[in-house]
C-alpha cells in the first residue's frame, strides 16, 4: 500500500466511524421514540447512516484487507476515530434532533464538497450521501422550529441540547495532518472552510426558532486521535457484543 492509500484508508475509516456511531445512537430509538412516525423516521435515518458506514468501510477494507464487519465490530475504543459529538448518549428527543440538525447542516456542506474528491469512489459515496442528507436536513430543521416555537418545555429542552452540544461542534471543522495532506492531494474535503457558512446557516435557523446561539467558550476534541468520552465504550460493548461473544459470526 502506498502512502496515499494508507492515508485514504484512515480517512475512509474515520468517516465510516462517524456514520457507524451516529447510526448506532439513532438505532437506540427503535421502539422508544415518542410516536410511531418518529420511530420509523429515526430508524430510516439510521439505516442511511449504516449504509454510508458500510460503503466507507468497504472502501477502506479493500485497501487494508479487512472486512466491513472486522472494522465495525472488532476494533476497540482507541481505534475508533469518530467525532465526540456523535457518541454522546442520545438524551431526550430534543437532544437527538438538535444534534441531528447541527450535523445535517454540516454534512450538507461537507458531502457537497467531497463530491469533488479526486478519489472516484469517495466522490461517488459523497454524491449518494448528499441526496440523503438533504432529506434529513429538511426534517431536522422542521423539528428545530417546532421545539423552539412549540411549548415552553420543548423550547427549554432544545436550548438545553444546544448548550450541551455547542462545545463539541468545533471538532467537526478541525483539520489534522492526515486531512491536510489529503486536502492538498484533492482527495479530502476541507472542513475548516465550511465553518463560516455553517455558522451563518445555523445561527439563522436557531434565531428563527426563537432559541439562542450558545455563548459557551469551552471546547473539546480528541475523537480523531481515539481519545473518547466515557460513552463510546458503552456504545461499542453493546454494538459489538455478538462478534465479541461469537467471533466470525455471520447471519
Amino acid at each position: 500500500m502506498n502512502d496515499t492509500d494508507s492515508l485514504l484508508t484512515r480517512y475512509a475509516i474515520r468517516l465510516g466511524d462517524d456514520a457507524m456511531v451516529h447510526g448506532q445512537r439513532l438505532c437506540e430509538w427503535s421502539s422508544n421514540a415518542p410516536t410511531l412516525e418518529e420511530d420509523l423516521a429515526l430508524a430510516n435515518v439510521a439505516l442511511d447512516y449504516l449504509g454510508r458506514a458500510r460503503m466507507l468501510y468497504s472502501l477502506a477494507g479493500n485497501l487494508c484487507g479487512q472486512s466491513e464487519d472486522e472494522l465495525a465490530f472488532t476494533r476497540d475504543t482507541r481505534a475508533f476515530q469518530n467525532l465526540l459529538i456523535l457518541e454522546l448518549p442520545r438524551g431526550d428527543f430534543a437532544f437527538t434532533l438538535v444534534r441531528q440538525f447541527l450535523l445535517d447542516e454540516f454534512e450538507h456542506l461537507f458531502f457537497d464538497a467531497l463530491t469533488a474528491s479526486a478519489n472516484e469512489m469517495l466522490a461517488a459515496i459523497a454524491g449518494k450521501t448528499r441526496k440523503e442528507v438533504a432529506y434529513h436536513r429538511r426534517r431536522s430543521q422542521e423539528w428545530l422550529r417546532r421545539f423552539g416555537l412549540g411549548t415552553a418545555e420543548s423550547a427549554r429542552r432544545a436550548q438545553a441540547a444546544l448548550d450541551t452540544l455547542w462545545g463539541y461542534v468545533d471538532e467537526m471543522f478541525a483539520v489534522d495532518d492526515l486531512e491536510a495532506t489529503l486536502i492538498a492531494e484533492g482527495i479530502a474535503a476541507d472542513r475548516a472552510v465550511l465553518r463560516a457558512t455553517w455558522q451563518a446557516a445555523v445561527t439563522h435557523a436557531i434565531e428563527a426558532a426563537a432559541l439562542t446561539v450558545p455563548d459557551t467558550t469551552w471546547r473539546i476534541e480528541g475523537g480523531r486521535q481515539g481519545l473518547h468520552t466515557e460513552h463510546l465504550g458503552h456504545l461499542l460493548s453493546e454494538m459489538q457484543f455478538m462478534q465479541r461473544a461469537y467471533p466470525g459470526l455471520s447471519w
Partner: peptide
C-alpha cells in the same frame, strides 16, 4: 403524516 413511511424510499 410522516416524512418516512414503511420503507426508506417512501413518506406517509
Amino acid at each position: 403524516v410522516s416524512d418516512f413511511g414503511s420503507t426508506a424510499c417512501k413518506a406517509l
